[in-house]
Every structure is written in structure tokens, then in C-alpha cells.
Design a protein around this nucleic acid. Structure first.
Lengths: 235, 235
DNA sequence: GAAACCTCATTTGTATGAGTATATAGGCAC
DNA sequence: GTGCCTATATACTCATACAAATGAGGTTTC
């Protein structure tokens, strides 16, 4: 996948971060001293400290002289960080988790689409159209097609003009992609979502904010339904 | 304010991070080598590297052997990180920025309130009530009252039961607090927002999701109006 | 002449050992 | 008990050395 080999400090950060997110290191629990801990991981204190520095920056832990290093309350975790998301979804996709991400998406994306309808430039529109064409050409069964799908949604977020929505774009779409990737593999004949996308595009092109919101809400809802169907009926 | 003295690595991270966010170090621009840069900041290479490790974790920069260290595209910046928010708002509150944060809030909070109405426990409700009483007793002119205000909104986010909304709570409320703090100081007779809060509370208590959404939307809109009025009419 | 390969220099990454700063706990005087 | 002091554990900072990665440019090979 990623061509460059992972560095030691990243590896340790990922390992410890994953332990925290999986609950193996509960909030409030402490770490041993740096020398001891670094030794246990088979790395130098330099590497161990840089790894911890990353986790501190993501809100997972905090450390103070004399008190030691402790896992912070989940309330402080930067859940929308891309690394943290990938650490959470490292093994199997949790159904509860994907439900929550879709719930967020169902709120964010229609609003972003409405804003995009009002503020989009021609350049934004062109990006969306390119993405749609790419989706049609490649199909959603291919990596290329899914990439185009993400590009379409990213273009909408960008067109919203709101930097916070833009910042939300990457983690939300990434999480959705991660939780639905296996869906495409399992589902025999996935529903064709291209018409839904085209309806959103048309609304944004017409600068019809209301229609953009409605069509996007429908798109997300349908995707959500597909997801639930693929993951197996539970409720 | 914060009792503990800031460590060197945090200080350097804050300084450089602020330079990036203020545009003094544009995306794509590179840093000098570690030895040279650390020397310029008057710290050891260890401290400089740990500072950079924090900025990497927040998505502001990236570094690779031989290529050096560069500012990443704003698209990758973790804008909802509490540190980054405080760095952005370090000197004067930008009106465009506060407009965007209110725009996000106007989307997120009504949805959170609706979800809270459906899922809140009695404990959540008690927290909201306590916060309301505290607001009434202390008044929004005091730090204590504003703290209670934040607690009220935080309780709603928690009651939503969605971890992503909970994760959004802290940065959104913090940013709102930062941009509106000076409003309370400047505005001679700020509007009493307590009734708006009580209406939201009543709707959540009744488990009326629709009313919760509507009352919260109203609350945010009114706060937004106040904000625009205080910051001076622009449009 | 083009392509694969190799060498080298530059930059970040890792290791180690020493010393400093800071906050907690416990003792001591009052 | 209350306030102050001291000891100590822990993270923080420093300096130096070496290792690994990578991009550039030259070299061989066909």
C-alpha cells in the first residue's frame, strides 16, 4: 500500500495508540517510566518519546513530570484524526461505529451540498463533472471508480467554502470508505448509485440549495441502507 | 491562566504552528535542516524534533529523509484540533472565521439536540438541569455562568450518544467561546439567552426530537445574530 | 543512445548517556 | 491541623554519534 516503510516512532505510536483505542489501556491507566517502557518496546528513549509526543498531540495521552504518563479521558480524543480512524478500524469494522459515522454523514453532507449550491465556482462544478464521468467510466467496483466517488464528495465540501466542513471532509469520507469497502466485495450486485450522484450534481449546477440538500440526503440514506443490508440485518 | 509552565517543545510547536496558520510559512514551503533550525530556535535537536513530531501529528507538516520538511496543503490540517484553534485565534478573532464556526454550529447542534431528545438518560437530563440552574444563578456575565453554558451544550452532545458528535463538541464550543468572549465584554446589555436554553431543555426532557432541533436552531441563530451585531454590521 | 545500475551526498531517523526542571509525598516546625 | 521544607521520582532537555533512506548524477551495459 504505502510505499515508504514505516518508521520506528510511527510504529510505536500506532501500536500504543491502537492499544488505547481498543480499550486495552483504559482511560486513567498509566505507563511505566520512559526507560523501562522504551526498553520493553525495544527502542531508544528518543523513539519512544517521539511516539508519545504524537499521541499527546492527538489527545490520547498526557504526561507531566513526577506524575507520569496517563491515558486521557475519551472526551479529549481527537476522533476525527485520520490516523486514529485507521487505528480504530484496523481489524474488523465495528457496526456501531459505522452507524455513527453514517449518522454524522447524514447531517454534514446535505448541509455541505446546500452551501455548495450557493457558492460553487465553475471550477468546482468542473471537478464534480470530471469525477462523475470517471465514476461512470470505471464503475464503483474498481478502485479507480471509488476514488472518483471520493473526489466528487470532496469537491462538494470544497465548494461549500467553509473551512470546517472542508476539514471534516477527509476523515468522514475516509471512514465511510473504510467501513464500506468490504461491502462492495461481499454484495453480489451493488445498487447503482450513479443516478443519485447525478441528481446532486444537477441541483448544485442549478444553484438550487434546497434540492441539493434533499438529493444528497437521499443519497446518503440509500448508501446507509445498503450498508446495513450488507453487514447483515441486526435490528 | 494555565498554571503549569509551558515546556520548550510545546513552545516551539506553538510558535511554528502559529507561523504556519498565519500564512507566514505557506503550504509547500520547506524548513532548513534540523541542526540549523534547532540552532535558530535556541533549542536542542531533540526538542525541535519533538515539536515537529507534534505538528506532523496535527497534519500541518510532513518530513522525509533527504527531501526535508515541508508545510502540507491546508486540506490536511486538523482544523478542529483544540491547539490549532487556539493558535488561529491567538491574537484577534477573525470575523470570517467566526462566521464559519457558527455555520458549522448551526448544522451540528440542532442535530445533536434531536438525537439527545431520543436517547438521553436521566443522568444526562440532570446534568443539563444543573447547568441551567448554574447559568441562572451566576449569569452569563460571569466566567462561572459561561462555564455552565458550555456544560449545558456539552451534556447535550454527550446525550446524543454519537461519539463523533461528542468529539466535535469540545472544539466547536471552545471556538464559539473564544469568538464570543469579547462580545460579552463589549455589548452593554446582552440579550438574556436563558429562556432559549430552557426551551431546548424542555424539548429534550419531553423526548420531542423535532422540538429539540427547532429550539436549538433558534438558539444558535439568535446567538449568531448577537455576534454579528457586536462585531459590527458588515453586510 | 537508452536503460539499468551503482555511488555518493544530504537529510531525517535512531541510539545513548548525562544532566535539569518540576511536581508530588512525606516529614518537620509551628 | 497548617504551613513550610526537603527528598525523590519522573518527565524534560542537551550533546554527540551513528544508521537509514532517498534523490541526483555518473557509469556501465546492451
Amino acid at each position: 500500500m504505502s510505499g515508504r516503510r514505516e518508521r520506528m516512532n510511527q510504529l510505536v505510536a500506532r501500536k500504543i495508540g491502537t492499544e488505547i483505542l481498543k480499550g486495552e489501556r483504559p482511560p486513567g491507566s498509566g505507563f511505566r517510566g520512559e526507560i523501562e517502557e522504551a526498553d520493553a518496546w525495544g527502542v531508544s528513549r528518543t523513539v519512544y518519546r517521539e511516539a508519545m509526543r504524537s499521541l499527546i498531540a492527538k489527545g490520547l495521552i498526557e504526561s507531566r513530570p513526577r506524575r507520569g504518563t496517563h491515558v486521557r479521558d475519551p472526551h479529549h480524543w481527537n476522533l476525527l484524526d485520520l490516523d486514529i480512524l485507521s487505528w480504530i478500524l484496523s481489524d474488523e469494522p465495528d457496526p456501531a461505529f459505522s452507524g455513527e459515522i453514517f449518522e454524522l454523514r447524514a447531517i454534514i453532507e446535505p448541509a455541505a451540498a446546500a452551501m455548495a449550491a450557493q457558492r460553487r465556482s465553475d471550477a468546482h462544478l468542473a471537478r464534480m463533472e470530471d469525477a462523475l464521468n470517471q465514476m461512470e467510466r470505471a464503475g464503483l467496483a474498481t478502485d479507480e471508480g471509488r476514488l472518483a466517488d471520493r473526489a466528487f464528495h470532496a469537491a462538494i465540501f470544497d465548494a461549500s467554502g467553509n473551512n470546517f466542513f472542508i476539514a471534516l471532509s477527509a476523515p468522514v469520507e475516509a471512514a465511510v470508505g473504510m467501513t464500506t469497502r468490504f461491502k462492495q466485495e461481499n454484495q453480489a450486485e451493488p445498487r447503482d448509485s450513479l443516478p443519485d450522484h447525478q441528481a446532486v450534481f444537477a441541483a448544485i449546477a442549478k444553484q438550487d440549495a434546497d434540492a441539493a440538500s434533499r438529493t444528497m440526503a437521499k443519497l446518503v440514506t440509500l448508501a446507509w441502507d445498503d450498508m446495513r443490508l450488507a453487514v447483515g440485518p441486526r435490528d
